Simulated scan of single mutants.
Amino acid sequence: MNNIYQFKANNYRNEEVNFNQYKGHVLLIVNTASECGFTPQYKGLQNLYDQYKAKGFEVLAFPCNQFKQQEKGDNQEIKQFCDLHFNISFPLFAKIEVNGVNTHPLYNFLKEEAPGILGSKSIKWNFTKFLVNKEGKVVKRFAPTTKPENIASSIEAIL
């Protein structure tokens, strides 16, 4: 278990996505929410995706309702919200949990590979971001307050 390619997750259509398809890509994995103060970061995430997609970069968005119930909708409602307000074109996954007993296995892995401040493993809030290199290794964790545009240099360094 030293890379993300062993994982699978359902997209917003509830179709299984095997992470093997992302081999050789740089990934930014983000837990998202539609009613959060950081929700406008969707625009910055889309800008990063537009800027680097042709070079093998992907943004993977995982909606989560664990932080003050800021993602109440079902998967289709979340997709409609993202399309209407941010016109996202990067992959949107089904709503998951990122903490607790029902944590998605991908997030257990991400938290283990890139702990937060003072070694904390739990996700503290929406829009925590994990940068994954072309070999599927987690290289950095970014706080929710880190704006997507401030991650560009880290992405460029590993593309």
Rank of each mutant, 00 (worst) to 15 (best):
L60D: 06
Y22G: 02
A54N: 14
F130M: 07
N3H: 06
P91D: 01
K8H: 14
F86L: 03
E97D: 15
P40F: 05
A94F: 01
V132D: 03
Y5T: 04
E58W: 12
I88K: 04
K8S: 14
E97F: 12
K79A: 03
K95M: 03
Y12L: 01
F109R: 00
L27Q: 05
K23S: 10
V59C: 06
G24N: 13
V26Q: 01
P91M: 04
N14T: 08
N10L: 14
D50S: 11
K95F: 06
N11W: 09
K43Q: 13
F38D: 09
L48D: 03
F67S: 10
R141Y: 14
L84M: 07
F57G: 01
Q51W: 02
I117E: 01
Y42E: 00
T103Y: 11
T103E: 13
A94M: 01
L45M: 11
T128D: 11
G24T: 10
Y5W: 12
Q76R: 15
F57Y: 06
I96L: 04
E97G: 06
N102Y: 11
Q76F: 02
P105M: 06
F7L: 05
I96G: 03
V138W: 11
K134M: 05
P40R: 10
R141L: 08
Q70S: 02
Q41M: 13
G44I: 03
T145S: 15
N2M: 00
P40C: 01
Y49W: 10
Q66N: 09
V98E: 01
Y49N: 10
T39D: 09
Q76W: 10
H85R: 14
A9Q: 01
E58P: 04
E149P: 12
N65L: 00
H85T: 00
W125Q: 07
R141W: 14
Q41F: 14
Q21F: 02
Q70A: 00
F86E: 01
Q51L: 13
H104D: 13
S154N: 15
D83M: 02
R13A: 11
K129E: 09
G73L: 02
K79G: 01
F81D: 05
G37R: 12
K134T: 14
L159D: 06
N31E: 08
V30Q: 07
E135T: 13
N126I: 00
I96Y: 09
E15D: 15
Y52W: 13
Q80D: 13
G116Y: 08
N102I: 00
Q69M: 07
P63R: 00
C36A: 08
A33H: 08
E16P: 07
H85E: 05
Y42R: 07
P40A: 00
F57A: 03
N150D: 15
E135V: 04
F90V: 07
Q46K: 12
S122A: 05
E58K: 01
Q46A: 11
G136P: 10
A143C: 09
C82K: 08
V26A: 12
Y42P: 13
F19N: 06
N14A: 15
E135K: 06
L60E: 04
N99P: 11
I88G: 05
Y52M: 06
L106C: 04
K8V: 03
N10K: 15
M1W: 07
K43C: 09
N102T: 12
G116F: 13
K53G: 03
L131Q: 10
V138N: 12
S34D: 11
A54V: 04
A157W: 09
F93P: 00
V101K: 09
E149N: 14
L48V: 10
S34Q: 12
F81G: 09
F7P: 14
T128E: 15
V101T: 12
L110W: 14
E113I: 04
